[in-house]
Computed example of a mutant assay.
Amino acid sequence: MYNNTTIVTLQLCLLLRTGVQKHVAVGRMCSILEEAYKGVQFPQHILDAYIHFESLTDHSYDFNCIRCGHYPPIIILDANRKSSFSLQGESIREPDTHIENAAQMDKFWKQVTDNIVASPMCSKDILNPYKVDVQYQNWSQWMAPDSVFPSGVVNTEHKKVPFTKNPNDENPTVLTDEYIDTLLCEGSAKLVKDIAKDVGVDSSGSKMDIIVRLQHKAKKKSLFKKIFTKLWGRSGGILVMACPHGICYGIKHLIRAESVRDHIDMILSMKHQPTIVINDLSNISAAHGNNRKKNMFAPHKGRVVDSSIENLNLLERKQLDRDMPCFNSFHQKYHVEPL
Score class of each variant (00 low, 15 high):
71 Y>T: 14
94 E>T: 10
26 V>Y: 01
50 Y>V: 11
62 D>K: 13
43 P>N: 09
78 D>K: 04
32 I>Y: 02
41 Q>W: 03
82 K>F: 10
53 F>N: 02
59 H>N: 14
38 K>P: 03
101 N>R: 11
87 L>M: 04
51 I>P: 00
85 F>T: 10
89 G>M: 06
107 K>L: 13
100 E>T: 07
79 A>H: 01
98 H>D: 12
92 I>C: 04
70 H>G: 04
74 I>G: 08
87 L>D: 02
54 E>T: 05
72 P>S: 07
84 S>G: 05
91 S>D: 07
72 P>V: 06
75 I>S: 01
26 V>I: 15
54 E>R: 08
92 I>L: 14
105 M>D: 01
66 I>K: 13
24 V>C: 04
52 H>P: 12
28 R>E: 09
76 I>Y: 06
50 Y>L: 03
83 S>L: 13
37 Y>K: 05
50 Y>H: 10
55 S>K: 08
44 Q>D: 15
74 I>K: 06
65 C>R: 01
26 V>R: 01
72 P>R: 01
95 P>W: 03
69 G>N: 11
65 C>V: 10
99 I>T: 06
45 H>C: 02
52 H>S: 12
38 K>Q: 11
48 D>K: 15
91 S>R: 08
32 I>Q: 02
107 K>Q: 09
104 Q>S: 12
106 D>C: 05
30 C>D: 02
55 S>Q: 14
68 C>I: 14
31 S>I: 00
76 I>G: 03
83 S>T: 05
107 K>S: 11
74 I>V: 15
80 N>P: 00
